[in-house]
Amino acid sequence: MSENPVLEVAILDVKPDQSESFELAFAKAQTIIIGMPGYLSHQLQRCIENPNRYLLLVNWQTLEDHQVGFRESSEYQEWRSLLHHFYDPFPVVEHYQGLYAGAVE
Rank of each mutant, 00 (worst) to 15 (best):
V58Q: 00
I34C: 11
F26C: 03
E78V: 15
V14K: 00
I48Y: 11
Q45T: 06
D88G: 03
P89G: 14
V92R: 15
L63S: 02
G102L: 13
E78C: 07
Q61C: 09
L83T: 01
E75T: 07
I33A: 02
S73T: 11
K15Q: 04
A29S: 09
P37E: 13
E20F: 07
S74L: 14
E20N: 09
A101R: 09
R71P: 02
E94H: 10
H95V: 08
S21Y: 05
H84N: 14
I48L: 12
E64D: 12
T62E: 06
K28C: 05
W60L: 07
L83R: 01
R80W: 03
Y76D: 11
Q61V: 06
Y39G: 04
Y96A: 15
I32C: 05
F70I: 14
Q18E: 07
H42G: 02
L82N: 03
L99C: 09
F22D: 01
P91E: 09
Y96S: 11
F86M: 09
C47G: 13
G35E: 07
V58F: 02
A27M: 15
Q97R: 15
D88N: 10
N52R: 08
I32Q: 04
E49S: 12
M36S: 08
Q30T: 14
S41A: 15
Q30W: 05
K15I: 01
G102H: 12
K28T: 09
H42N: 06
Y96H: 15
D88F: 00
F22K: 00
P16F: 05
F90G: 05
L56M: 15
Q30S: 12
S73K: 08
Y54P: 00
T31D: 13
V68I: 15
R80V: 10
D13H: 04
L82C: 07
R71T: 06
H42S: 06
T31R: 12
L63Y: 01
C47D: 15
T62P: 02
S21I: 04
P91V: 05
V104T: 14
I32R: 02
F70V: 10
P37K: 13
N50W: 06
A29C: 10
Y100V: 13
A25D: 02
S41Q: 12
A103S: 11
D88H: 03
K28D: 06
E94P: 02
